[in-house]
Design a protein around this nucleic acid. Sequence first.
DNA 1: TTGTATGCGTTATCAG
DNA 2: CTGATAACGCATACAA
Lengths: 337, 337
Amino acid sequence: MSLTIYDISQKAGVSIATISRVLNGSPKVKESTKKKVMDIIEEYGYTPNSSARAMGLKSMKTIGILCADSSDIFLAKAVYYLEQNLQSNGYESLLCCTGYNLDAKKNYVDLILSKKVDGLILVGSNFIGTTEDENQYVIDSSEKVPVMILNASFRHDNVYSILCDDMNSMYRATTSMLGSGIEDILYLYNSLSYSGRKKLDGFRMAMQGHHSPNYEELICQVPEECSSMNAIVAYIEDFARSHTFHGIIASDDILGVAAVKYATSNNISIPDELSVIGYNNSILTECCTPTLTSIDNQLEIQTRSLVKTLIGVLNGREMPQKTVFSGALIKRNTTKF
Amino acid sequence: MSLTIYDISQKAGVSIATISRVLNGSPKVKESTKKKVMDIIEEYGYTPNSSARAMGLKSMKTIGILCADSSDIFLAKAVYYLEQNLQSNGYESLLCCTGYNLDAKKNYVDLILSKKVDGLILVGSNFIGTTEDENQYVIDSSEKVPVMILNASFRHDNVYSILCDDMNSMYRATTSMLGSGIEDILYLYNSLSYSGRKKLDGFRMAMQGHHSPNYEELICQVPEECSSMNAIVAYIEDFARSHTFHGIIASDDILGVAAVKYATSNNISIPDELSVIGYNNSILTECCTPTLTSIDNQLEIQTRSLVKTLIGVLNGREMPQKTVFSGALIKRNTTKF
DNA sequence: TTGTATGCGTTATCAG
DNA sequence: CTGATAACGCATACAA
């Protein structure tokens, strides 16, 4: 059995209230008794029981982090940064990997809320759908604790969105490619999550602005079944048999790498005959040859801002409901521009 | 304010004890009252307060997961699998990213133990050092809760190790390469964690068994400063100026990919002039060209076994202190054998 | 089968 | 500055 506040109070010869006060850094304690208590605590190695503490404080000093799949290279980085930032603000992280199914997500949210977390962070734009019904669980959650959303926007009381302006990033990337003289651009994506939709919007806007004809035909969704690199490459090869393009913009780096591999295995020279841009600026960009130009969405800055906002909200301060950063095109060797 | 067991007992017209009983599936409850209570709970959306529950049960149904860096591609996968397995056994995961510093690790352990977790999982062999002093914190922890170690072995009461036989895997991989006629093999590594040491041992054993002369000269530690892909490639290039080798075995896939990039950028043909083997069988193996042969350490199986063992221990069953799996060489295009 | 009363380890509100 | 004492929400031994 570990020691309680009573044991310490006995040994120190003071009441439990005093112990509690020194523990919580109350100013109204005499220096000498404070020191005495501290010494006893040190000597006997007492640590407060956080469950009991939670009952009194009505806070577990814990934040629930939900993400679909923490092994996803992008989400993993986000989770890492979040945990680090929370930690340094005195909060712990309860991690839940929900998968991509809506009902599962709802269940996990209920579960995690019953743990009386102080806040909820939804990592990844896949938590926000297109219909009201799909997003009801976010609203429900926000009635209990502040909800933070990374990489998607959702306007509602007590929910805060931190994201990168994917539409604008994609618009600028596409415009750059168009500006370099490439007009037939293949747009490769796999999911239409919130950010997936924004990216596609940005691509479309740029193509429209450039009065490119028939660009819709070069918007290509890679089916979910294509889960391996080989499968994706094969899919692109197949697509290329009936379409012509001299640029590829992908909604993430995996697809970008697949595009590079498609080119190299078909003796298409990059960037002379084909330019490629990926998204996320992950380590994968450095692994392929040539290295992949990619859009960086400032994840580290976003996560820092998110935690800062959350801590502010938890401390009762007024905080911005929506914080938007802008992405940056990181130029590597799959583009000439 | 969320509802308590008292609110529900009022609405249902029974005592709180009865509510508690149906909540905990006690058999001594009449079917009809059980149903009545369930209905009320359903209707009002009551969820028990887990902090209060923890005080009675002395368990938070939570496991602490410690890892150095959950954004590391290998550790992220491990964390993901662990969380999933724990979840399906009714446990939640408290994630802590400790970094690689020893003191920091110790502090995090203290912190997480004060949260009264039911068990501790140390993810990654970097948690086990070579000296007794370095590992004392593991022993201390094991006095409070069962400690599981993934990817390293540490023999002590109430600590359980689940790992892949890295030494043997590396031995076999090296032997394969030697068998294909390549005798001058560059061994590339960056850290000497528990598994790092085992891998190196396996390499050495194979080279010794083959009576290869001077193999020690081709054991090369990539300095920590080389954090980017370019830096690693440059380092290999530099090393190659004063050494000759026709095979490279790397202690992880990043180094393996760097080896591939070194070769392609220097017009060294793979696998004709140079064979390469990586470690971890991560997605990176598919991103480089040619694709990287790598050693798979059966992470999914390991994590499943770990959680199974942990749950067994928590339920008071006798469980194996050490579970060892063997790795598998996944052949891709950087090797001929 | 159900209800009552007590304990779990803290925090917080009062008095002193 | 310090000490009683009442919450906090639930589990459970003991009664009924």
